[in-house]
Amino acid sequence: MSTVQFAGISKAFGGVAALHPTDLDIPQGEFLTLLGPSGSGKTTLLNICAGYLAPSAGRLVVGGRDITALPPRQRKMGMVFQNYALFPHMSVAENVAYGLTVRRLSRDEIARRVAEVLKMTQLEGYGERAIRELSGGQQQRVALARAMVIQPDILLMDEPLGALDRQLRKEVQFEIRRLHRASPRTTIYVTHDQEEALVMSDRIAVMRAGRIVQLGSGADLYERPVDTFVARFLGESNLLEGTVDAVLDGHATLGVPGFAQPLEGRAATGLRAGGAASALLRPEAVRAQAGGLQARVAERVYLGELIAVRLMLASGHELWSRRLANEWSGRDVVEIGWDASAISILPDAS
């Protein structure tokens, strides 16, 4: 287990930058998620960490040691691939034991550690099975067991749950979280799924177009996104475009066409008076409020314990609200409002 430091790491493919110079420090035992859409550079960063890609510039330091030039097999990292990359000609136990036989451990030691990790990943009794006999979820656990059995300094996971159905994905998320809490090991997890990121991570790095846009806990990112891209990527959001009137002491006012009063809220950095920006209002903050703004209910979507309502304002703006199902009565015209503290003023993502 180790700290990981990316220092000015960048990667270009044939002159096109896949990853701009990036600095990222991951403390020992942290579960860090690289979250972003495809092409954002998250897998590139992961492959550089594993040693499958050489960075164009920069250094990778693990546990105080510069390993930029070290080949993958000397890195002591466990990788879980998208679609698992299990050896199809070996049994479950042989797959899991692969990293141990390479290290020439004794037969007994290998058997002991394989049994231990199969138990940990709830695969007891599956050791002799062929890979093709397993379900997707079981294959995913074999991949995890194979990566963990070598007791890697760092665990790397590249969209490991992408091939699973929704229900199973949820179970495995909590399973991975449980395993990580039980023995915290520095983990870098790549996904484009915000829910996965929120459930498992200590910190999340949101990536876009080869850069880390924001790094922080799930709550940081959700409550204080740095721009409209992060706001859209994590959670649902209402964004109202306008022009910044004034910025003062971490607060800003935004003039939004069609609103009589400017909207006031917490200001993200990078705003300047007169510039374009957006006001972020999370759907759960939009509630019914007597004497508030008049709005017409355009659509109701039943979500179980919640109901999502699409509201049309007189200004022509559209707001989504997500509240407990009993909050919105059957009326078509309602009066709505929100707490002043619910608004953030964010620069538009370029």
Binding site: A50, G51, Y52, P71, P72, R73, Q74, R75, K76, M77, G78, M79, F81, N83, A85, L86, F87, P88, H89, Y98, G99, V102, R103, R146, I150
Partner: peptide, 27 residues
């Protein structure tokens, strides 16, 4: 042959010849 199998083997510590013998050749 899925190239990622070779990457996976390398990541688990196997050298080129070991990968050839245990992964590439059987497949």
């Amino acid at each position: 042959l899925d190239r990622r199998l070779l990457l996976a083997a390398a990541g688990l510590g196997a050298g080129d010849f070991h990968i050839f013998r245990t992964v590439t050749l059987p497949l």
